Every structure is written in C-alpha cells, then in structure tokens.
Amino acid sequence: MGRSRRPRPRKDPDRPNVNDEIRSRKVRVIRPDEEHEVVDIDRALEIARSYDLDLVEVAPKAKPPVCKVIDFGKFMYEKKKKEKEAKKKQHTVQVKELRFRPNTDDHDLEFKTRHARGFLEDGDKVKATVQFRGRDMLYTERGEELLLDLAEELSDVGEIESKPTMEGRRMIMMLSPTSKG
C-alpha cells in the first residue's frame, strides 16, 4: 500500500532562509561581534553553532550571499515589530461626501461646512455634491455659487481639486487638504 505524500507547506517569501535551508556553497558570514569572512556553508553553520545561534541569510542576491549569526526568533520578532510601526504611521486618504440641495438653509450649510473643515484637517478629501431634483434644474447657477462659497470658506484648510461640474442631475466639486510645506 503506497503512502500518500502530503505537499510540503509553501515557505513564506518574506521569511529568509535559515541554517540548512541556505543553498549556496560559499557565504559571507557576519558574526555577532561584527567580524565577517567568506567561508563554505559547512564552516558557516559551525560558526553559528559555536555561538549557539542561527545562520540567517540576510542578502541572498549578493555575491556571495550574506548570512548573519543571530537569534532567528528575535530577528523575526524585530522585523514584524518594524513593519507594524511603519503601518501605524501610514495614513490612507479617504473621500468624504457632503450633499446639498440648491436651496440648502444657511444653518445646515454652516453645519456641513464645519464637518468638511474637520475632514480636511484630518487629511481626507471632500466631495461636495449639489443634488438637483425636478424644477431645481433651473437653479444650477445657485448650486455652483453654493459650492464656490463652500470652497472659499474652507480655503485655509483645503483647495479645489476639481471645479464644480455637472454630472446628470448633480453638480460635483472635489476639495483636497492644503499641503503643509
């Protein structure tokens, strides 16, 4: 009866080769005391064992590949920690939409302008839309005036990315945060 062979789990491409996984005959070994030398792989593994640490391939594309004698678990922990920190500092820009009608009341306009100011200060873009229904189509210039007033009110924190344009029964304008330089 033949044994069924399970496929080997695929190695994570971000994970470097360690100890016996290193396929190169000669490698440049960097010891914990920062000394380095080019030796064959068996000697490199011996050096790693003498320090009771792992041989980790840090630059596989180099000629010869560069391997460091380090604690692999600690190395991966530090790497993941750095990636997490880098991800924390990233900010994805979102587009927040505000909708108006051509006859929007002044109080509502002020309220929505405050929201738009907050969005722009947080680094997000604002898509201001004036929705026209039925006879509102007669007041397209009122809608454009409303959007331009909004842009002027927010000129200290945002700038017009795209001027008001009609798309069907909507007039749309994009505002983006002013670049702080």
Rank of each mutant, 00 (worst) to 15 (best):
Y139D: 15
Q131E: 10
A48K: 05
Y51H: 12
A86W: 01
A62W: 07
R49T: 00
P60L: 05
K68V: 10
L55T: 01
R31W: 04
G73C: 02
A86K: 10
P60R: 08
K68N: 08
D33G: 07
V95T: 13
A44Q: 02
H36P: 00
R117Q: 10
K89S: 08
V69A: 06
R99V: 09
V27L: 09
Y77C: 00
V126D: 03
A62F: 11
V27M: 08
H91P: 00
E37G: 07
V29E: 04
C67S: 03
R117W: 04
V66Y: 05
D52K: 15
T140P: 00
T104V: 14
H115A: 13
R28S: 08
F111L: 14
L53W: 01
A44P: 01
R133V: 11
P32S: 05
K79T: 09
F72T: 04
V66T: 10
D54C: 07
T92M: 13
A48V: 04
I47R: 07
F75P: 00
H107D: 14
N103C: 08
K81P: 00
V130G: 02
L109R: 14
K79M: 09
L138V: 14
R135Y: 11
D40Q: 10
E34C: 00
L53H: 06
K96I: 10
H36I: 04
V130W: 02
K127I: 05
Q94H: 13
R114K: 14
E97D: 00
L109E: 07
R101K: 11
K63P: 05
F111N: 14
F132Y: 13
E121M: 15
K63C: 10
A128I: 02
R23Y: 05
P65H: 01
E144M: 14
L55R: 03
H107W: 14
E78F: 09
L45G: 03
T129Q: 05
A44K: 04
R23I: 08
K96P: 01
D33A: 06
F119M: 10
V58C: 07
K63S: 15
G134E: 06
D40P: 04
Q90V: 01
F72I: 02
V69C: 05
R101L: 09
K79G: 03
T113G: 07
E35D: 12
R43D: 02
V130K: 02
K84R: 15
I30A: 07
G143Y: 01
H115I: 13
T113I: 14
R117G: 05
A48F: 05
E78M: 12
L120M: 06
E37M: 11
D105M: 12
M137G: 09
A44F: 02
D124T: 06
D71T: 01
S24Y: 09
E37W: 03
D106R: 13
L138M: 15
K88Q: 04
K63W: 12
T129N: 04
T129H: 02
K79W: 06
K81T: 06
K26C: 12
P32H: 04
A116T: 02
E141L: 15
K112N: 11
I41L: 15
D71V: 06
R23Q: 13
A116I: 04
Q131W: 02
V95Q: 09
P60T: 03
F100P: 03
E83A: 07
E141D: 15
V93A: 06
T140H: 10
L98Y: 07
K125I: 03
K61P: 00
P32I: 06
E85G: 03
H36Y: 13
T92E: 13
T104K: 06
L109M: 13
D54T: 04
T104S: 13
R43E: 07
